[in-house]
Write a protein that binds this DNA or RNA. Structure first.
Length: 202
DNA sequence: CCGGGGATTATCT
DNA sequence: GATAATCCCCGGC
């Protein structure tokens, strides 16, 4: 199990990186509680040219400042006033691309995650959806802008991967107001995985 | 089983 | 003052 290195994040094609993040493992170690999960759903946000991106048109505010950092740091923000979203910043400094991590399949520290989210037993909602996975992993806005090879939060590769047939693409969730860009196939997920967000497709 | 809509507040105009 | 990269409950079929 190896932490991803800078060259993984510094690539210029954020869509490709979003797809490559599937199967990698997100780990947090807050308060000596190790929790981890395999990434099974992501979305790419293509910097200043993507109407759905917070940095569309070069917009730069206190909130999205970390998107302008070099690839390999986190970008965490609050959505709808209550939900925390965890993103991976990619590309070079001043090219504000990011990948939203939308779902994990829980691996280690399930008891700790259940406690954080206030549940007694593991079910498919524990790390399903960007808001839920942040709660389960203990990720908060204060973790924005930190390096993803740190000891507190990192993403690792355990050598396993999904085949192309196992991966599906779709338009992104919840961004209907982005005009034509709302239709871009920038969401990637593992077919049939029960932790993928949205209602199960029958 | 499916879809519609309300909750709730940080953030930007 | 309006909006938002969500979640979950509830009502209807």
């Amino acid at each position: 199990m190896k932490k991803l290195t800078n060259d993984f994040y510094s690539g210029s094609d954020v869509v490709k990186i979003a797809k490559k993040l599937l199967g990698k493992i997100l780990v947090t170690t807050f308060c000596d509680n190790l929790t981890s999960g395999r990434i099974v759903e992501t979305e790419a946000y293509a910097g200043i040219t993507d109407k759905a991106s917070h940095s569309f048109g070069g917009r730069r505010t206190n909130r999205n400042e970390h998107m302008y950092k070099e690839g390999g740091v986190s970008y965490v923000y609050i959505c709808y006033g209550i939900h925390t979203m965890f993103n991976v910043v990619t590309n070079k400094a001043n090219t504000p691309d990011a990948v939203l991590i939308r779902a994990l399949e829980p691996m280690e520290g399930i008891d700790c995650m259940l406690q954080r989210i206030g549940k007694k037993q593991l079910d498919n909602t524990l790390t399903k959806g960007p808001g839920n996975l942040c709660r389960a992993m203990g990720i908060a806005k204060t973790h924005s802008g930190i390096y993803l090879n740190s000891d507190e939060i990192f993403i690792a590769d355990d050598g396993s991967s999904f085949s192309d047939e196992a991966i599906a693409a779709s338009k992104r969730i919840g961004i209907d107001s982005a005009g034509m860009d709302a239709l871009l196939p920038y969401r990637f997920y593992i077919r049939g995985n029960k932790f993928v967000s949205g209602r199960p497709v029958k």
